[in-house]
Amino acid sequence: MSLADTAQQIRRRDLRLPLAAILVVVALAAPFIGSRYVTHSLIIALIFMLPAHGLNLLVGYTGLLSLAQAAFFGIGAYAAGLLAVHYGTPFYVNAAAAGLLAGACALPLGIPALRLRATSFVMCTLGFVIIGQAIAKNWISVTRGDMGLSAIPKPHFALGPLSFTVSGTTSFYYMALAIGALATLAVWMIVRSPAGRNMIAIRENETLAESLGVPTWRYKLLVFIISAAFAGVGGSLYAHYLTVVSPLTFQMYYSTTMLIIVLGGGAGTISGVVFGSLLFVGLTEALRITPELRMIAYGLCLLVLVFWFKKGFAPVLNRFWDMIGGAK
């Protein structure tokens, strides 16, 4: 390695590490910088980042376009809400149960669906959302139908002698931030593992990957289950934050929002999902107080994506990161 290359790497570390530290400080100080409503918007963005991470594993890394995330998001929300209301279980039990139940539901659904191709698979996953909403509406003895579940308690933790409830907006933000960071780390570990490389091989050329000995169908089923589990945990956060769950949790708007986060942020990138969640959920939620401006801003973002950033904002973020690091 030449002296110039060594100096280049030193410059990159010197610039990127402080920038990363600034971003961490801003994330930690966000509740004290903006208003309470801005904190609320960030919480909603962090909640939707979880199912978006799961969807990115499917769409971005495995090449499977799915619209079923809202179904698993709703299953997780109802699972957490029912446990909290009827049994008073701690939040971490509800979140784990929501993820496990969503993943368990994905198993029998994914076995036949993943044998389909392209458009047929997309339509099948759309059917999951419709079926989930119909069950939530009509299984009145459990879900209370259109009335939904209400008075879901705020997240409660019981750790030995310690017992506390996360009740305020600021404290919930920090809890959601911690869970979001753990989910992001989990996705990073998955995509950097040998399994992640096999997922990318399936995305690039499934036939070739199978000829090289990769059990493609098993990998697709496993990713489908993991993706559903991420959505289920996100649903549990949603239920405990809003304290209300209804059949509207299964609406297609949520599936399309998660898909826009992934495609708009940059499919196949982790930073794109984080940025997409903040932009397409956090910003639009913050602009909810001005409905006309909100829809105009949302529409302009989509137009900019379609015409100038067809691969999402991730390539721009990567170029900016390289520029900050002094890369040539």
Results as ranks from 00 to 15, higher is better:
G132M: 06
L114R: 00
F121L: 15
S41M: 09
M123N: 08
H53D: 10
S66A: 15
L55R: 05
S66C: 12
S35C: 12
A68E: 02
L50D: 03
T119C: 02
L50C: 10
A104H: 08
H53T: 10
A104W: 03
I111F: 09
A70H: 02
R115H: 10
S120G: 11
Y78S: 09
V38W: 13
V122E: 00
L57E: 01
L109C: 11
Y78Q: 11
V38A: 14
L83G: 12
R115M: 05
G54K: 01
F128L: 04
R115S: 04
A102F: 06
L109T: 03
R117T: 14
R36D: 14
L116V: 11
H53Y: 15
S120A: 14
A113C: 13
A95W: 03
A102C: 11
G88D: 10
C105R: 01
L82E: 03
L100M: 13
A79M: 13
T89V: 15
P108W: 07
S120N: 13
M123D: 08
T125P: 00
L109N: 01
R36H: 14
T125H: 01
I130L: 12
L109R: 02
Y78R: 09
G110W: 02
I131E: 02
A118R: 15
C105M: 14
F72I: 07
Y61P: 03
Q69E: 11
I44A: 12
G99M: 07
G127M: 05
G63A: 10
G110S: 06
T62R: 08
G110P: 02
A96S: 13
G127I: 04
L67K: 01
H53E: 13
L57N: 00
I75F: 13
P31W: 04
G54P: 02
A70N: 05
L83R: 01
L107T: 13
G88V: 10
G88T: 11
I130V: 13
V85G: 04
R117A: 12
H86K: 15
P112M: 07
